[in-house]
Structure formats: structure tokens, C-alpha cells
């Protein structure tokens, strides 16, 4: 056994010497780039497609590696503590701020170097078509008249859709007359169809088919502009929630301290991937907007959103900072 161990260790040392030089050289990437994916379902699929397309523009493959859990904190923690050489990147989102303020992670967005923004997504507010509500204003009025609480389905407390829900309720003055019903991804439309909840805030993709079939009505979407798939659906701002807006972005980031040239290489690969017609095509059916932004602009957006989310979460009593 001992001789075998020595042999193996010896062999490893020789190989390490032979290859050690290569890793220090300027050329990036010198090994596959690990892209940590924080969530399952569509976020994972978009990430996988992005990795696939980025690989075509780099010397090495980009490998999507799923590290879910803790609302993103597990994956962030992994990448944050990984070597900052550009071979470890994270498919991130606004969750970098929410995990920090909820106390799940001990570091905030400054632990990462932005690479590029890839896409944006907005949530949709839907109600049962039988409710007769056409706008958020209708809904608020009806609820106040009936004097009963509004049951709103969204993902768990502190999630993006929950924060959007609370902010929206605040701007239509229903925040103390609503009950948040947390649902797993995908469950809310059924509950809405069955009439167990009054409204739901989820990604539009979950409602579109029901909306077109006339069973559910999408009242509004939470972004600043209407989306291509739903040209007739107004923004929440237009629908009675004045001044309200919530947009989720997704992008790529690397641990702070990653060399400049590695970031640049990745940024360029990401830009080419987003422009690829296959990515644009997938966006239409999955339901997100390809929205590339270079790293400077992306960094500014992360910082601005962080401030906003911090303020919102503190106001809602969700912040532990």
C-alpha cells in the first residue's frame, strides 16, 4: 500500500510540474470554466443554454454546475470562496442582495466582480377571470368594499416575487389587508384557477396559456415596459400601482479579484452568446428578455438595486442587517 501511495504521489507531482507552468500563463481560459447555477427549472435551462453558447466563443468549455439551496446562498458561498482566476463564475441575480439582507450569507454583492448582464425578467400579477377585475385599481376597490383580506400567492418570504408582491400592495394601499400565501414554484396558477386565492404574482410564463384560454386574467406586469409576449397587458404602473416597478435581472459574476483580462474575455463571450439567434429564440418561449449590458453598467445596476432592496426589506421587516 505504502509503495502504491508513494507511486501515485510521485506521479502526481511529475504531472503537476509539467502542467504547472501552463496555468500561470496569460492565456485564459486554460481549463473549463465552471458556471455555478443557483436555481432549478427555467433559470437552470437558460444558464445551460448560455454556457453552451459561450463555449463556442472560448478555447475551453463553460460547464454549468448546479448548486442550489438556501435561496442561492449555497452557490454564492461556493463561488465566493473559489479561486479568483476566472474559471469560477456564477449565474447570478437580484438574489445576491436578498440573501445578504436576509442574513443567509455574510458577504454582499461587493464580493463579486460583475461580468455582464444577460437578461431581465418581470413578474406578472394574475387573477381569476371570474373575479371581474380588470385593473389593480378594481381589485383594491373591491377588496376594500368587501372588507376582507386579499389572499395573494407568491413564492416564499424574501423571494423576488414576494418582495414584488409586498411593494405592489403597498402602492395600491392594500398592504395591511392582504395575506401572503407562499407557494412552491408552479403551484400558484392551480390555486388561482380553483379559487382558493384571489391573486398570484409569478413569472408570466405560468399564466400565459391560461390567460389566452380566458381562465385567468393577467392584470399587469411588474416592469417598466410591456413585454413582447403580452402586448395588451399594461404595466402595474399603468394599472393602478403608481410608481411601482420591479425587475429581476440575471447576469454573470466572478469572485472579487478576478484578473481583468479574464473578465473581459468572458464578457465578450457572453455578449456573443446573447446575440446568438438561438438565445433570442429560446427567450421568446421561455419568457425572458435578452438584455445584455456591459460590466460597468451591470455593476451600477447591481449597486442601485441593492440599495433599493435593502430599503424595501428593512421596511417589510425582512432585513437582518
Amino acid at each position: 500500500m505504502n509503495s502504491m501511495k508513494t507511486l501515485l504521489a510521485g506521479g502526481a507531482a511529475v504531472i503537476a510540474l509539467a502542467f504547472g507552468g501552463a496555468a500561470r500563463a496569460q492565456d485564459f481560459p486554460s481549463q473549463p470554466v465552471e458556471m455555478t447555477i443557483l436555481f432549478g427549472s427555467t433559470a437552470q435551462t437558460i444558464g445551460q443554454l448560455l454556457a453552451e453558447l459561450m463555449s463556442e466563443h472560448l478555447d475551453e468549455r463553460v460547464v454549468p454546475v448546479s448548486r442550489p439551496g438556501g435561496g442561492g446562498s449555497v452557490g454564492y458561498q461556493h463561488v465566493q470562496s473559489a479561486p479568483a482566476d476566472g474559471h469560477n463564475i456564477v449565474w447570478n441575480s437580484n438574489s445576491i442582495s436578498t440573501t445578504y439582507y436576509s442574513g443567509a450569507t455574510s458577504f454582499d454583492y461587493t464580493a463579486f466582480e460583475p461580468i455582464a448582464r444577460i437578461s431581465t425578467e418581470v413578474a406578472a400579477v394574475a387573477v381569476n377571470a371570474n373575479s371581474g377585475w380588470e385593473t389593480l385599481g378594481d381589485m383594491a376597490e373591491a377588496i376594500r368594499e368587501q372588507g376582507r383580506p386579499l389572499r395573494v400567492g407568491a413564492s416564499g418570504r424574501g423571494s423576488f416575487t414576494h418582495l414584488a408582491t409586498e411593494a405592489m400592495l403597498e402602492s395600491i394601499g392594500l398592504d395591511d389587508q392582504a395575506i401572503h400565501v407562499p407557494f412552491d414554484e408552479g403551484r400558484a396558477p392551480v390555486e388561482l384557477l380553483a379559487g382558493r386565492i384571489d391573486a398570484a404574482v409569478q413569472w408570466p410564463g405560468q399564466f400565459i396559456s391560461h390567460h389566452n384560454a380566458g381562465k385567468l386574467r393577467i392584470l399587469c406586469i411588474t416592469g417598466t415596459e410591456r413585454v413582447e409576449q403580452l402586448p395588451d397587458v399594461p404595466t402595474c404602473n399603468e394599472s393602478g400601482a403608481e410608481g411601482f416597478e420591479m425587475t429581476m435581472w440575471r447576469g454573470l459574476a466572478a469572485p472579487a479579484g478576478t484578473p481583468e483580462h479574464a473578465i473581459e474575455t468572458l464578457e465578450e463571450a457572453a455578449r456573443l452568446a446573447v446575440e446568438d439567434p438561438r438565445f433570442q429564440e429560446a427567450a421568446k418561449t421561455i419568457g425572458f428578455v435578452p438584455d445584455f449590458a456591459p460590466r460597468d453598467e451591470f455593476g451600477e445596476q447591481i449597486a442601485a438595486d441593492d440599495e433599493r432592496l435593502a430599503e424595501l426589506m428593512t421596511r417589510l421587516g425582512l432585513s437582518e442587517r
Partner: peptide
């Protein structure tokens, strides 16, 4: 499938 490459060896 993704298999870890390890951090000790640079390949």
C-alpha cells in the same frame, strides 16, 4: 455529468 477536478492538481 460534472465530476470535480480538484484544486491540488492544475489539470
Amino acid at each position: 455529468a460534472y465530476l470535480p477536478r480538484g484544486t491540488w492538481l492544475p489539470f
